[in-house]
């Protein structure tokens, strides 16, 4: 029996076991000290600190530059924060007062912000105005245009299916934890869709009214010009009968 045990031990010793360790090669990153880079390679990767939780999609890259500032460099991110952490890109700065959750997609020329919970605050490059993106809405910000301000589109309601797919793929918890969050979000999303449709209607009505006013003014100017031309012609005819 002893011999058998010995043989088994030798056999086990000889077998070359490779276990793929996910966390072993990762560097430590201290959020408060800054100056560290986090890259998700082929799989998604999570970064947790007291201030923020970031789930990086495969091949996403972020840089923690200094205290409380995270630069989103490229890729998709799911971010949860309860602290005034500042998220930065060349096109906009984003932060949250209170508790927020959101999905962020960063490409070379755009940043897309999808608010899942709380009110995210945004200032775009070249403008000091603070825009609020409540839960259930999304906004896209692009490069700085000729007017010196980053291009930003009107906030829109989140598209349900793509958002949920993206959220599910980056959710840091278990499926059982995700389901109740999703149910809670559905209600928030419904309200946001309704609110935005009303807002869009108001803006569209205002735009139409403004356009109509412009058209009316142009018509008045044209008529005045015509009257002046006619007057000149009459004057010319009177002088040259």
């Amino acid at each position: 029996m002893k011999l058998m045990r010995l043989l088994c031990w030798i056999m086990v010793f000889c077998i070359d076991v490779h276990v793929k360790a996910e966390e072993t090669h990762k560097e430590k990153c201290d959020f408060n000290r800054g100056n560290c880079v986090i890259l998700a390679e082929d799989g998604r990767r999570v970064f947790r600190s007291d201030e923020i939780l970031v789930m990086l999609a495969p091949r996403a890259l972020l840089e923690i530059r200094n205290e409380n500032t995270v630069q989103l460099v490229k890729g998709d991110f799911y971010i949860e924060t309860e602290q005034p952490v500042k998220l930065q890109t060349p096109y906009a700065k984003i932060w949250c007062e209170g508790e927020c959750k959101g999905l962020f997609s960063r490409t070379a020329v755009t940043l897309e912000v999808k608010s899942l919970d709380g009110n995210w605050r945004i200032t775009r490059a070249g403008e000091k105005t603070v825009y609020v993106v409540p839960a259930g809405l999304q906004v896209s910000i692009g490069e700085v245009a000729e007017n010196g301000q980053a291009q930003m589109e009107f906030p829109q309601s989140l598209p349900w299916v793509p958002t949920i797919k993206q959220w599910a793929s980056l959710y840091p918890g278990k499926v059982s934890e995700f389901k109740p969050e999703l149910e809670k979000f559905r209600q928030v999303w419904r309200e946001a869709v309704e609110a935005v449709s009303v807002l869009h209607q108001t803006v569209a009505t205002r735009a139409v009214a403004s356009h109509e006013a412009e058209v009316e003014q142009a018509r008045r100017q044209r008529l005045a010009q015509l009257r002046e031309d006619q007057g000149l012609r009459n004057l010319f005819r009177d002088k040259n009968p």
Binding site: K74, A108, V144, A150
Partner: peptide, 24 residues
């Protein structure tokens, strides 16, 4: 590759900052 991505990001930031100043 990471260093390059970060440098590209810094350049992009610089370009956007200059672009915000250009109209004036």
């Amino acid at each position: 590759r990471i260093a390059m991505a970060l440098e590209r990001e810094q350049f992009l930031e610089f370009r956007q900052n200059v672009a915000t100043l250009m109209p004036d």
